[in-house]
């Protein structure tokens, strides 16, 4: 496609332009934060003046330039990069009566490292089952492994690709069948289970366009996966394997009344950041990336459905000194 050439050419532009765009947007965020902080200080000053002048009944008059800045951080919430933090949320009676658990589990996910022997064994099994010319690559830390078969008939493949350009996206039943066969023939499901106690489950997500098996441990989604895509003739275009070893612990839970003071919502990737700190109408409990959360559903809705906030259900000190747990926590913000 001609515009792809243009996109490639844009990729090679002067580094100064690339740096300028990144640096300035960071700077603009810095100035926005600084301005908001300055506005907060000024508001406090005006509040203090207001209090001292109460006797004179003189209303405070904020300077006009503060208007837009105040609207960036309305009372009840604050904005940090791509996260909205909510404070002093109000609850309906039903939501407020939620019974906080006394203890909760948390799960640390440490990368599983696959050895050369284990991967070679899987490749051998695949070749014996008819997956010829299979190759594998272990990434530098051994936790991510790539399998593929070469394209056997590029001409046919090109025609197929061209035909598919105009076809609806989505995985086919044949893709799923090939994926099941690949896992069964390679023995990777057994290997992963023996090594990590993680069980693979097929997730039907046609929009993703690749066949994905996610790894679960004791009902918890672990972030482990095997993702596969296939040529039309059933050869493997690529499979990527990543797995973690879960370590489960039981710890004291943070009561909802305390946890709600640190409720947040991620707003990354161009998502809207319009909000009002509405009332919480229901509470439920969920594990995300191995960590326990109260999920607070607001009475506000957006196009995609109800607005949900998350509040960590354990004391933050439990995770701040553990690099892996902290990474699992940071994923909740959908931060890159």
């Amino acid at each position: 496609m001609k515009s792809e050439i243009l996109l490639d050419a844009i990729g090679e532009i002067r580094e100064a332009f690339i740096h300028e765009a990144a640096a300035d947007s960071r700077r603009s965020r810095f100035w926005l934060k600084t301005a908001i902080a300055a506005a907060a200080v000024l508001i406090l000053c005006f509040a203090a003046i207001f209090i001292t002048r109460l006797g004179h009944r003189t209303p405070p008059v904020p300077p006009p330039e503060l208007g837009p800045l105040i609207s960036e951080a309305p009372a009840g919430a604050s904005k940090e990069e791509n996260i909205l933090w909510y404070h002093n949320l109000s609850f309906t009676d039903e939501a407020a009566s939620y019974d906080s658990p006394a203890t909760v589990d948390l799960c640390v996910f440490r990368d599983a490292v696959f050895t050369d022997e284990e991967i070679d064994s899987a490749v051998l099994r695949l070749q014996e089952a008819g997956w010829t010319d299979m190759t594998s690559t272990r990434y530098h830390d051994g936790s991510l492994v790539f399998f593929s078969q070469p394209e056997r008939d590029p001409k046919t493949l090109d025609e197929t690709i061209e035909a598919k350009r105009n076809s609806p996206a989505g995985i086919t039943d044949a893709d799923v069948e090939h994926a099941r066969q690949f896992i069964s023939d390679s023995g990777l499901d057994q290997l992963i289970f023996e090594k990590t106690s993680v069980t693979l489950v097929l997730e039907a997500a046609p929009a993703r366009n690749d066949v994905v098996f996610y790894g679960y441990y004791d009902g918890l989604e672990t972030g482990s996966y095997i993702r596969m895509s296939f040529y039309d003739n059933g050869d493997l275009a690529e499979a990527k394997l990543y797995a973690v070893v879960p370590e489960k612990r039981t710890v004291s839970a943070l009561p909802l009344a305390e946890a709600k003071e640190h409720a947040f919502r991620g707003i990354l990737y161009g998502g809207g950041d319009d909000y009002e700190p509405h009332e919480v109408r229901s509470v439920r409990f969920e594990y995300r990336d191995g960590l326990p959360y109260y999920i607070l559903t607001l009475d506000e809705t957006v196009a995609n459905g109800p607005v949900e906030l998350r509040a960590l259900a354990i004391d933050f000190s439990l995770i701040e000194n553990d690099e892996r747990l902290h990474a699992q926590w940071a994923k909740q913000f959908d931060l890159p």
């Binding site: 792809e4 996109l7 609806p168 996206a169 366009n209 690749d210």
Partner: peptide
């Protein structure tokens, strides 16, 4: 490109490519 060629793709890249057709 690899994914797009195999019936994948979309998102900002596809939009950017469409927009850049204006400059061809």
């Amino acid at each position: 490109r690899f994914k797009n060629a195999r019936k994948r793709g979309g998102g900002e890249t596809a939009l950017a490519l469409d927009e850049l057709m204006d400059c061809i």
